[in-house]
Design a binder for these strands. Structure first.
Lengths: 138, 138
DNA sequence: TTGTGATCAGGAATAATTACCACTCATACC
DNA sequence: GGTATGAGTGGTAATTATTCCTGATCACAA
């Protein structure tokens, strides 16, 4: 009998998923690579990229295309908003409710077929705003 | 007498600004380069990058760090929201009012010093949603 | 076992951006 | 007008993030 080809849960995938679940930060592919390499020293960077991409396609994880130059990944799949530190680039969750109306409002004003939205706050994280008190950045 | 060093409005800068002002799309640095090159064939790509960065630092233009791999630039500096086509990557403005309360709400829930926010809708532009009706993407 | 397709590691290739450097240009001062 | 100075330029090299390619390996079913 023909069976539907399915994604195998290889050791590599399992460990990527585990390591991503351990952290509340939103690591870049390279940071995930570093984390995973401690347990699987021979894993390839390409494998990490391929599997992060694959897992975000299937909805197992979230791919964040926020500001900054790198993509970031998140084991929390429930939709939520983010804040990015303008100084160090760190990304954290913001625990405010989803604005559910906004897609409809935007749909009225746009010719696009709206599929979703994301809010990204920008600011300074605790560490960076303490530093900036001392070192002004004109 | 010492005078404050100021940014000179060179021909290159002027033309970059003019070309950016002509379009309502949100061109990438490379697209700006192509536009400007029609009038200044010898301009360097580095000059375009350097000046777009510089002009966004001084607030003359807006740098959009939206999803996708490239930075985009906008001659409209008044804050507004954007929508990005998931299929072709095009970015357009969304003409809905700013949600002014949201920064304060987020500030209550976060340890960050909030400086601003941006909403990015995702969806399909008119062209792409017509295509997808015919060519399903599963 | 053995064939098949999914997956892997490693490295090469690509794309976007930035850094560097020698040269040019505008300006201020003589 | 000459010229020193620093801002700006163009071309190229380097860097960064990501994707692609290839041959080897693995899991599973016949």
């Amino acid at each position: 009998m023909q069976h539907t080809p399915q994604m195998r849960l290889t050791t590599q995938r399992q460990i990527i998923l585990e390591e991503l679940g351990k952290v509340t930060s939103h690591p870049t592919a390279n940071e995930v690579y570093d984390m995973v390499r401690k347990r699987l020293p021979r894993i390839g960077l390409g494998t990490v990229y391929r599997n992060l991409e694959l897992m975000s396609d299937t909805g197992m994880i979230l791919k964040l295309e926020v500001g900054g130059t790198q993509k970031r990944f998140d084991a929390t799949v429930a939709p939520h908003y983010h804040i990015r530190c303008l100084s160090c680039g760190k990304v954290d969750d913001v625990d405010i409710p989803m604005i559910s109306d906004i897609n409809r409002i935007a749909a009225d004003k746009s010719k696009y077929q709206i599929l979703g939205h994301h809010i990204e706050f920008t600011g300074l994280c605790h560490d960076c705003s303490s530093v900036e008190e001392k070192v002004s950045i004109n």
